[in-house]
């Protein structure tokens, strides 16, 4: 059986890749995808711990996270479309009307 640690390392690695992506990528759509990746890393951690503790709480939590992620993606894409209609770009560096 694959030990618990391996799953957690994978989850941590995915989370880090996602977080790095959010910080270095400039395209709003790619940032959204990186956020989804981070959420999935969290899901993996929850499922792992759920298996480890033999309790269903973690898996229930995963369902909620997936539902919320879907809602968030819908709202996020709508916001990006609204921005694109007005500005014709999804580059977050160009969306800089307000500063300091």
């Amino acid at each position: 059986m694959i030990p618990l640690t391996w799953y957690l390392i994978l989850s941590g690695a995915l989370f880090t890749i996602g977080a790095t992506g959010v910080l270095i990528r400039r395209n709003a759509l790619v940032i959204l995808m990186c956020i989804e990746l981070m959420l999935n890393a969290v899901n993996l951690a929850f499922v792992t711990f759920s298996r480890h503790h033999d309790s269903m709480d973690g898996q229930i939590f995963v369902f909620f996270i997936m539902t919320v992620a879907a809602a968030e993606a819908a709202v996020g894409l709508a916001i990006i479309v609204a921005v694109f209609k007005n500005k014709a770009t999804v580059n977050v560096d160009k969306i800089n009307l307000m500063k300091w």
């Binding site: 989370f15 996602g18 977080a19 959010v22 709003a28 940032i31 959204l32 956020i35 981070m38 959420l39 890393a41 969290v42 951690a45 996270i65 968030e72 709202v75 996020g76 916001i79 990006i80 609204a82 921005v83 007005n86 500005k87 977050v92 969306i95 800089n96 009307l97 307000m98």
Partner: peptide, 23 residues
């Protein structure tokens, strides 16, 4: 555009912080 921009910033950073909360 300023309203769009506020919304986009709030959304991206809000979703980002939620990931940390969840972890």
């Amino acid at each position: 555009l300023d309203s769009n921009e506020a919304s986009l910033k709030y959304f991206l950073l809000g979703a980002f912080s939620t990931c940390f909360l969840l972890y």
